[in-house]
Amino acid sequence: MTEVILILLVIFGTLSLQFKKLLNAVICLAIFSLLSSLLFYYLHAPDVAIAEAAVGAGVATVLFVVIISKTRKEEK
């Protein structure tokens, strides 16, 4: 299970770097955060998993989406 999550983490991290549209990149980053919180839970660190899910997938994604909607939509 851990190996599958690690491979998915690499895939989504690369995708979020490669996307030219910033909204797609942010969604990939949110999936990356959720997967890494799942990985922390599997590695017996539920404390870090809660922090990662709340900050990475919740607050940071909302802030990124709001900031993108107020600035440019695509990478230069």
Binding site: P46, D47, A49, I50, A51, A54, V55
Partner: peptide, 9 residues
């Protein structure tokens, strides 16, 4: 699991 920081977020 939990604590001040996580609960605050």
């Amino acid at each position: 699991p939990g604590g001040g920081f996580q609960g605050g977020v």
